[in-house]
């Protein structure tokens, strides 16, 4: 026992000291990290619900195992829904938000908020002004029919053009959006007026 203590006291002591150090750092940064994540989500929500303006803070619901945000404008009118969804990606999970019209029949926007897709190719699933056409295609699509990926300029209303060199990334994003259409949209609570 004595030998054991003689050899290990430093490790035990350092373990304790470092744990205290980590706890301090954690409590000093956690609020800010949460705030960053919340801001990221808020920016994304405002982007996919163009009518939100300076509305009320979105109300969080749980629909079909997804976080769903009910968005109202300043006067309390329903202006849209936002579904927070994630799914498999090329390298790591892709997380995105889908904006829906108040009646849930139209997509108002899609924005990827978390991914590790290949820089220069797959990362074009992310919105970047008007530079990346891919995510912009979703605005205005109907939720009555699953979308299909094509490798040419989209012709039919339900078609989405893939990113050249990143067909898989394009497909994965579309799969997540299609899953939202199929599983979450029919479950949205009915809303009067």
């Amino acid at each position: 026992m004595k030998k054991f203590l003689h050899e290990s006291w430093l490790v035990v002591l350092m373990g304790g000291a470092f744990a205290a150090l980590l706890a301090t750092t954690q409590s000093a940064t956690i609020d800010r990290i949460r705030e960053n994540e919340r801001q990221d989500l808020d920016t994304a929500i405002a982007e996919v619900v163009p009518d939100l303006g300076a509305g009320r803070p979105p109300e969080k619901l749980r629909v079909a195992e997804h976080d769903v945000y009910r968005c109202r404008d300043a006067r309390g009118m329903l202006v849209g829904w936002v579904v927070d969804a994630s799914g498999v990606g090329f390298i790591d999970k892709i997380r995105l938000v889908v904006g829906l019209s108040p009646d849930g029949r139209t997509i108002t926007g899609v924005k990827v908020i978390g991914h590790l897709e290949t820089p220069g190719l797959g990362n074009k699933i992310e919105t970047k002004g008007d530079e990346h056409f891919y995510p912009l295609q979703y605005a205005g699509k109907s939720t009555q029919r699953a979308m299909e990926l094509v490798k040419r300029p989209a012709g039919e209303p339900h078609e989405i053009q893939a990113i050249t060199g990143a067909t898989y990334s394009s497909q994965y994003v579309m799969d997540i959006v299609n899953a939202v259409i199929a599983r979450v949209v029919p479950e949205l609570p009915a809303e009067k007026g």
Partner: peptide
């Protein structure tokens, strides 16, 4: 032990300030 502790601190700091 030492390296892991300070890497974790660096990681938390980056997440807080260079998200």
């Amino acid at each position: 032990l030492t390296i892991a502790t300070f890497v974790t601190i660096a990681d938390m700091t980056l997440k807080a300030h260079l998200y």
